[in-house]
Measured scan of single mutants.
Amino acid sequence: DRIFMTRTEALEFLLKAHQTAVDKIGHPSHKQTPADHAAIEALDRLLLDVRARRVDQFQINASAAQIIVTD
């Protein structure tokens, strides 16, 4: 599946995904793992790359739809 978004929409989408990941590892019942921190770092890099126009398409994980940034 493909989803087309403007750059602004894609950045909002990534910010929400980032916040969800941060909230998940901050929850008291969740045991933090290196994979959790790696996922947040990957989202940080992706946010910067989309914002800087170095990336025009991405996929958060293998089961997610491919996001295509349109400007």
Rank of each mutant, 00 (worst) to 15 (best):
E12L: 08
E9P: 00
P28G: 10
A38T: 07
L47G: 01
R54W: 04
S29C: 07
F58V: 02
L43Q: 01
E9I: 03
Q59I: 09
S29V: 09
L14F: 00
D56M: 10
T8W: 11
H30T: 08
A17I: 10
L46D: 00
P28F: 02
Q19H: 06
I67W: 01
A62R: 07
F58N: 00
A39Y: 15
G26T: 14
I25Y: 06
I67H: 02
F13H: 07
L11W: 04
A64D: 13
M5H: 01
I3H: 05
H18G: 03
L46P: 00
T33E: 09
A21S: 04
I25V: 11
D1L: 00
H30D: 08
A10V: 04
Q66Y: 13
R53L: 07
D44N: 15
T70R: 12
N61T: 13
R45T: 07
D56L: 08
L43A: 01
A35N: 10
T6G: 04
D36R: 03
L11C: 04
I25C: 04
F58Y: 02
T20K: 14
V22K: 11
A62M: 09
R54V: 12
D71A: 07
A52R: 08
D36C: 04
T8G: 10
F58I: 03
Q59P: 03
L15W: 12
Q19S: 08
F4N: 04
D23V: 08
D1C: 08
V22Y: 04
D56F: 12
I3N: 03
I3D: 02
I3R: 05
H18Q: 10
D56V: 11
I25M: 12
L11F: 04
T8Y: 10
I3K: 05
H37L: 15
E9W: 01
D71Y: 04
L15Y: 12
T8L: 12
Q59K: 08
Q59T: 08
H18W: 15
G26N: 15
F58A: 01
R45L: 08
M5W: 01
D44Q: 15
Q59A: 05
R7N: 04
L47E: 02
P28N: 08
K16W: 09
T33V: 08
I60S: 03
D71K: 05
T33F: 06
F4Q: 06
K31P: 10
T33K: 07
A10K: 00
D71T: 07
A10N: 00
F4W: 07
R45V: 05
I40L: 12
D36F: 07
I60T: 05
R53A: 10
E12G: 05
F13L: 13
F13W: 11
T70Q: 11
Q66A: 10
L14I: 10
R54F: 05
D1H: 02
R54I: 12
I3L: 09
V22R: 10
F13R: 03
N61A: 12
P34H: 09
I67G: 01
T20M: 15
P34S: 10
H18C: 06
R54T: 08
P28M: 07
F13Q: 04
I40N: 02
E41R: 13
A10Q: 00
I3E: 03
E9G: 04
Q57F: 11
L46I: 05
G26H: 14
A39P: 03
Q32P: 15
I40W: 03
I60W: 05
V69P: 01
I68R: 03
I67Q: 01
F13S: 02
Q57K: 11
H27L: 12
T20F: 09
T33W: 06
H18K: 15
S63W: 07
K31T: 13
E41P: 02
A52C: 09
E41M: 06
A65N: 07
T20Y: 09
T33M: 11
K16I: 12
P34G: 07
A10P: 00
T70C: 11
D1V: 02
Q57T: 13
A52P: 00
K16R: 11
Q19R: 10
H27N: 13
V69S: 01
I40T: 03
D44K: 15
T8F: 08
F4V: 10
R51I: 15
T70S: 11
V22I: 12
V22H: 07
A65M: 11
D49E: 13
I25P: 03
T6C: 04
L48K: 15
T20W: 06
D71G: 07
E9K: 05
L48P: 01
Q32L: 14
A52Y: 10
R54H: 07
Q59D: 03
K31V: 13
P34N: 10
L47D: 01
V50G: 00
T20H: 13
T6L: 03
Q59M: 08
L43W: 03
N61Y: 09
E9A: 08
D36E: 10
R45H: 08
V50P: 00
D1S: 01
L47H: 03
H27W: 12
L15N: 12
F58L: 02
H37R: 14
V50I: 05
T33S: 13
Q66E: 12
V50F: 03
V50R: 00
Q32M: 15
E9H: 04
A65T: 12
L46A: 01
M5C: 03
A65V: 15
I68K: 04
A62G: 15
S63K: 10
L14N: 00
R2T: 15
T8E: 12
A35F: 09
K24H: 09
H27P: 08
A62W: 04
A35T: 08
R2E: 06
V55R: 04
Q32T: 14
Q19L: 06
D49C: 05
D1Q: 02
K24R: 13
R53Y: 07
L48A: 15
I60C: 06
A42H: 14
T8D: 14
D49L: 11
R54Y: 05
F58W: 02
E41D: 11
R51M: 14
D23K: 12
A42V: 12
L46T: 02
D49P: 00
R51C: 06
V55F: 02
A10F: 02
A64C: 07
V69G: 01
I40Y: 03
K16E: 11
F58P: 00
K16Y: 07
T70V: 13
I67M: 03
I68M: 06
V22P: 01
A10H: 10
R51F: 07
D1K: 01
Q57E: 11
P34E: 12
H27V: 09
S29Q: 10
A62Y: 06
V50M: 03
A65L: 12
P28D: 11
T8C: 07
A35S: 11
L14K: 00
Q66F: 13
V69D: 03
D56N: 15
I3M: 09
V55G: 01
G26Y: 13
I25T: 06
D71L: 05
D71C: 05
K24W: 07
R2H: 15
V22C: 05
E12C: 07
A21M: 15
T6S: 10
R51N: 06
A21F: 12
Q59W: 11
D36T: 05
V55N: 02
A42G: 05
Q32Y: 09
R7K: 03
D23N: 12
F58Q: 00
V55A: 04
H30L: 08
R45Y: 03
D36P: 03
H27D: 14
I60Q: 02
F13N: 02
A38D: 10
R7W: 14
E41N: 07
T70N: 08
A65C: 07
R54Q: 05
A38H: 09
Q57P: 01
F4Y: 15
I68F: 10
N61I: 07
T8S: 13
M5R: 01
E9Q: 12
S29I: 07
V55M: 04
H37V: 14
H30W: 11
Q32I: 14
